[in-house]
Amino acid sequence: MNILRVHRHWKQFRLHCERQKQCVLRVSLFCTLLLIILGACGSLELARAQQTQARPVVVQPGAPGQPSKILPSSTQGVLPPQSAADTAFMQGMIVHHAQAVEMTAMIPSHTNNKDLHTLGARISRSQSDEIDFMKCWLAARGEAVPKPMMGMPMSHDSMTMMPGMLTPEQMDALRKAKGAEFDHLFLVGMIQHHNGALTMVRDLFNTSGAGQDAELFNFATDADNTQRAEIRIMQNMLKKERPEEK
């Protein structure tokens, strides 16, 4: 395309020059330029040819012992099917996590325990981050994003209670407690709460076709690990408080 255009310009230029009869120098200059450009084009072509030599292949191996298939170079990635259980898991976990955030929000006004403040900061941070992540995941897939209301008493309806969530009575008791009593109820309650999340993850993966979404898989696995670590920290804190209790 470019070459054609250059050619056309060149013709016009020559016509113009013949009329003017005074531009031999210009013509030769132009020719030199053209040669340089063509030369550059040529070396580009050469480079492209060299690239073709080392053309990458797309290979899909077969099962062990089976031959591999060469796929077309135009092959692009596809995703495994999405599962309704994935969506339900994310929606349920948002509600579940929201309660943990609500619990940690009580810490500053209910206890002076430094360790619990640190722990609360960690839990609040990880759970809020995870809520954000889950909301994004749902929103990006066009799924409904639940909006749990903080501080609203929850009903006993098993439909609204995800595994491990504290009952309204437990939450009330926590709100009313102060100092060492709060510390204890918080730790016991949060361990129960976190264990519920572990149950939710197990149920998810025990559903056919669920958890094949990479983001969800990674999230559920990491959330599981984070909660296990936090459970362990809380159990150690409970062990420490024990001598003081008695």
Binding site: A84, T87, Q91, G92, A144, P148, D157, M159, T160
Partner: peptide, 10 residues
């Protein structure tokens, strides 16, 4: 709702 767990929010 896609899932019972969500009915409260809905």
């Amino acid at each position: 709702p896609a899932n019972p767990s969500q009915s409260q929010t809905e």
